Simulated assay, not measured.
Amino acid sequence: MKRTTTQLTIIIFLFLGILGFAQEKKKFSSIPNILQQIDPDDNVDSWVLVYNSYGKGKEIKTSGGTISYTPQFTGFNLFPSEDSFYYIAYSQGGKINYVVDTEALKKFVGKIDNAQEASIVLASDGYVVDEEFKDLAGNYHEDKSNYYLDLGKLTSKECPYQKTHYTLTVNKATGVVMNVKDNGTYIELYNKKCANNPRLLKVEKKEEPKKDEPQKTPKRK
């Protein structure tokens, strides 16, 4: 009986360990590394991922044979404050095509094969991996059925500029977003032009003399 109880205890701890491992959150790596996890589903012969910064393009991933493409001057970005951009040139059926926005990127990815592709697809809806706040908006975990992604989103460009973080449940089989949980605002930034800036509201304004109030003349000694 004692032996049976011991074996049962070991099994329970093993089960809890496996469950805990499945729920362990992993931080996304850098944006370039995320993009390099793309595995397109269509019959793409070869493709190249290009990073453009200050007008200079740098190939950060090539797949398949070498292709001759025209440098692009617009592209997609997975983080709203970046000045640079990415684009993809790919060969399909002897024709060169380009991916220069997040909607085309979503189609290029096709079926979601990993958590990185899930975050890339969600970029077309404004969700981002916030590299500055990965604990809140740049991590994920998964189980047998779903990916669970903690991502950020720019929810106001007005005063105050703000970001909100969400937990999105993405079904592995269908790629459908099953649930979106709003975890609240994690950044609020004011500037001097914001009329509702709390710092400006604390500034004491000098009271101007009332027009109807007679001016007092100094008394002569």
Rank of each mutant, 00 (worst) to 15 (best):
Q7I: 12
D39S: 11
D41Q: 13
T5F: 06
K25G: 02
S46N: 11
N43V: 09
P32A: 09
F15W: 08
K56G: 06
I10Q: 02
I38H: 13
Q37T: 08
Q36E: 10
K25P: 03
K2Q: 12
I60H: 00
I60Q: 04
I12E: 00
P40L: 10
G65C: 00
G55S: 04
K58R: 14
G57S: 15
T4V: 09
P40Y: 09
D41T: 11
L16F: 12
T4Y: 05
T5W: 06
F21I: 05
S68I: 11
V48I: 15
F21C: 05
L35H: 06
T6N: 04
L16Y: 03
S63D: 04
N43I: 12
V44I: 15
Q37P: 08
K2H: 02
I67V: 00
W47A: 13
G64I: 00
T5R: 14
F15G: 07
K25A: 10
K27Y: 15
I67E: 00
K2D: 05
I67G: 00
K56E: 14
V44K: 08
L49F: 13
S29H: 09
L49T: 10
K25R: 14
G55D: 06
A22H: 04
S46Q: 08
N52T: 14
L14V: 04
L49Y: 12
G17P: 01
L19V: 01
K27E: 13
S29P: 02
E59W: 07
T5K: 11
L19H: 02
N43F: 09
K56Y: 14
K26L: 10
Q23R: 11
G17E: 09
Q37D: 12
G17M: 09
A22W: 02
Q23A: 02
D39R: 10
K25Q: 09
T66Q: 14
F21H: 10
I60F: 01
V50M: 07
G65Y: 01
V50W: 04
Y51A: 10
F21S: 12
L14W: 07
Y51V: 12
S46P: 01
W47Q: 06
Q23H: 04
G65M: 01
G65F: 01
S46H: 06
K58D: 14
S29N: 08
R3N: 07
G20A: 06
E24W: 14
Q36H: 05
A22V: 08
F21T: 13
P40K: 07
G55K: 15
V44F: 13
F28C: 00
L16K: 03
T5N: 03
Y54S: 12
L8Q: 14
Q23I: 05
Y54P: 08
K26M: 08
K58Q: 11
S68Y: 00
G64T: 00
S53A: 14
G55N: 03
S53D: 15
K26N: 10
G64R: 00
S68Q: 01
G57N: 15
L14Y: 03
K2S: 03
S46C: 05
T4N: 09
R3Y: 09
G17A: 02
K56D: 13
L16R: 00
L19F: 12
I31M: 14
K25Y: 07
E24M: 12
T9D: 06
S63G: 13
K27N: 07
L49G: 05
K56N: 15
L14I: 09
F28W: 02
K2G: 05
I18D: 03
T66N: 11
Q23S: 04
L49D: 10
I31V: 05
I18P: 01
I11S: 02
